[in-house]
Amino acid sequence: MPAIETQGLTKEFGEDVVAVENLDLTIESGEIFGFLGPNGAGKSTTINVLLDFIRPTAGSAEVFGLDAQREPAAIRERIGVLPEGYGFDDYLTGREYMEWAIETKDADDDPEALLDLVGILGEADRTAAGYSKGMQQRLAFGMALADDPDLLVLDEPSTGMDPNGIQHMRSVIRDRAEDGTTVFFSSHILSEVEAVCDRVGVMNEGRLVAMDTIEGLRENATGESTIELECAAPPSPDGVADIEGVADVTVAGTTLTASCTDPAAKVDVVRHVDGRAEVVDILAENTSLESLFNQYTEGGRDAEEAVARETREAST
C-alpha cells in the first residue's frame, strides 16, 4: 500500500486561483520523497489537503489507504508532522509542548531524549514563544518525531535553521528512514532535496512537472553546458561556431565562451582554440540540477514577475 496517494487532486481558492491542479502522486512506503518547487507552486496546499487542514475542490487524497477527509484522526495517529505556518503562542515551555505532543500521541517517548536529539534540551524550560525561528523549528521537528511515526511529513523543514542544524536534521531523517519510516518533505531548495531524497517530484504552478530519481532527472537534462577559455591574447571566434554541437560563441576581451548542446563538443572547442591561441585557463560547466530545476519551473513566479516587469517597462 502506498504511504501517500492522490488522484486528480485539485484545489481552487475563490474563482480564479488554482493552487493545485489534477495532481496524481504516489509515494511508496519506505522512501524519502522530496517535493520540490518554487514558492507558491502548490506544495503546501497539497500537504494541507493530506493533513485535512483544507478540503480539496476535486479528487482524493489518501494516507496509508485512509481518506484524508474522512479519517483525519486515524491518519494523525500514524504520522509526524512539521507543519508550515505554525506558531508556539501558548504560555508553555518547550518541554511542555514536547510532553503535550507525546501525551496526545499516547506515546511513551522520553521528552528529554527527544529534546536532546533535536538539540534544545538546554533551553527546554524556556517559553517556546521566545525561541528563535531555528529553535522553534527544532522543537517542531522533535514533536513530529514523537511516537516514531510511520510517515514523516515535513513542510520546508530547514526554514530558519543554521547549517549545523540542517545537517543534523538530515542525519536524523536518514536514520529514521533506515528504520522504515517514509519521509515526505517539501522544499524550494534543490540541494537540500538532493542530499537526502530517493525520489523527487517537481511542482510548478499547481502541476507536477517532473517525477524521478535525482539521477533520472540529471540524465534527462537537456540543458546546455558552457565552456570558458581564458587566453593570453584576444582569441578569434572563427570556426568555433562550425563545430558540431556548439550553439553559440562569444568573445569578451581575452575570454571565449562557447555554449554546447552536446557536452562532448567542449573537448573539440578546446582543441580548436588551442591550435590558434595560447589557452591559459579552462572553466567548464555542466548542466546543474539547479538549471534543470529552473528549466522545469521556468524560474517560477520570479521569472514571471521579471517578464511582467519588462513588459511594463517596455510599454512606458
Partner: peptide, 20 residues
Amino acid sequence: GEREGGGIKFMLSLPNTRRD
C-alpha cells in the same frame, strides 16, 4: 487566535479532530 497564530497546525497534526 489559534488559527491566526498557527497553534492549530500543531493541534491538528497530532491525533486530534476538529471536534476535539
